[in-house]
Every structure is written in C-alpha cells, then in structure tokens.
Amino acid sequence: MTRGMIIRYGLIVAIIVVLLFPVYWMALTAVLPTRELLSPSPPLIPDLSSISFDSFQRVFELRPVGRWMTNSAVVTAGTVVCSVVLATMAGYSLSRLASKIGLVVGYSLFAVRLIPTTLLVIPLFMMFSEVELNNTLRSLVIANTVVIVPFAAWLMKSFFDSIPVELEEAAMVDGCSRLRSFLTIVLPLARPGIGAVAIFSGILAWGDFTFARTLIQGDAGTTVTVGLVSFVGEYTADWGALMAAGLLSIAPMVVLFILLEPLLISGLTSGAVK
C-alpha cells in the first residue's frame, strides 16, 4: 500500500465518521440510559456495560410504532408496484415511440418538479375528500405514485434506450408480435432497471412527509415520518425512546439500500453505462 493510498483511506474514513455521526448518535441515544445523555458532556464513546435496549421496549408502549411501520410499509409497497408498472410501460413507449408528441408529453411530466408539494396537496386534499378517499392509505399511494412516475418513467426510458432494438426486430422477423417481444425479450433484459426504479420509488414513498402529514388526519393511518415528528413535541425529555423509534423507522430502507445499492447505482447511471 502506497503512502498516497493510506492518506486517501484516512481521509475517506474521516469523512465517513463525520457524515455518519448522526446515525451513530441516534443509535447511541437509543441504547444509553437518558441520565447519561442528559449531561452537558455526554459520552461520545459509550461505556459498553451501560448499554440497554429498554428504549426499544418503551417506545412500543408509548406510541403505536408497530402500526406506523405497517402503514408505511403498505404505502411503500403499493407505491412501488404502481410506479414500477406505470413507469415500465411509459418508459418503453417513450424509448421506442420517439415521436414528437410523445417526447413533448414526456418532458411536460417534469413540470411536476416545479410545483411545491405543499401546493399540489391542496387540490389533492379537496379531490380526495370529494370521493371520500381522505384518511385512507390508498390516497397516499396515489399521491406518491403521481409524483414518482414522471422520474421513474424517464429512468426506464434511458434503460430501454440501452437495450438494442435489433433484438426485438429479430424476434419480430421470427413472427413474434410487438407485445410478445416486449414481454419475453425486452422485459427480462430490463430487470436491473426495474429493480432500480423499485428501490428508488421505495425510498421516496417511505420518506414521504408532506402527503402523509396533510392527507391523513386520524391516527389509524399515521406513517413513521409523521408519527415520529409528532413524537418530538410530546416527549421532549425521552430522547432515548424517540431515537429508538427513529432507528426502527430508518432500518428497513437503510438495510435494503445497503444490500441493493450496486443495483440502484447501475440503474440510475444506466444512460451512461451502455
């Protein structure tokens, strides 16, 4: 190992320590007794013997964290399925259709990005209450899908662009219909792209705060993000329980991300790595 590499590793480790400190501090707060942390000089490196997992137990008694997680999981799963299906269809169409109208429409989808979510949610709120969809997890699935699909569709388009058309043409020469060649040839090749879109929309849906905050009023449909934020004012003193809840609610997505990160990265940069 050269000196340059050691320095490089040192720098990388240093920056990772700084960047991941918030996660470390969450974990530490969750496992240390509040008494030790409520001090002007909290222990940066804990005494291992004082670690306990009481906070995790307590948080389930204080608030229905289990239900929050279930709700978030339902919304995320629903959004992922809807986004993947719609984006795959639209992405293929945008990639192969390549007509002017299609592209104009496609680009106009990006207008969504200009609208602050807090503004979009006003008419959505009124529309959903008109059809009595407010306070349902379905309304969250719809709202999240609406803002995710434009991006997901373009992601899929760039992925389909990287699949040579010749493959389909060959299949069609052999008498395959267009639809069939799409289903049997293109789709299997697009699996990494679909995977990337799935994780991407999963992360966005799980992290949604604005829609969950405004479209859901009762307690039955509270998701982790809204639940946790409402927790702050109420149990200011119980940071251990609060951070335990925070840790639980980031765990599913962080674990998925760590496992599937290469897939996500290759999918997101697919336009580049042809």
Binding site: R63, S129, E132, N134, Q217, D219, S230, F231, G233
Partner: peptide
C-alpha cells in the same frame, strides 16, 4: 388516541372543514 398539542388544532379544523370529522 393521542394527537400532539401542536398538531391537534390543525388536524381537527381540517377534518371539520372537509366534512369528515372524528
């Protein structure tokens, strides 16, 4: 069920105004 005091007023007014109150 509990709603934090900060959110309580907003939530209930929203629900009352939308015609879907607790």
């Amino acid at each position: 069920y509990p709603v934090s005091n900060e959110d309580f007023q907003n939530q209930i007014v929203t629900q009352l105004s939308a015609g879907d109150p607790p």
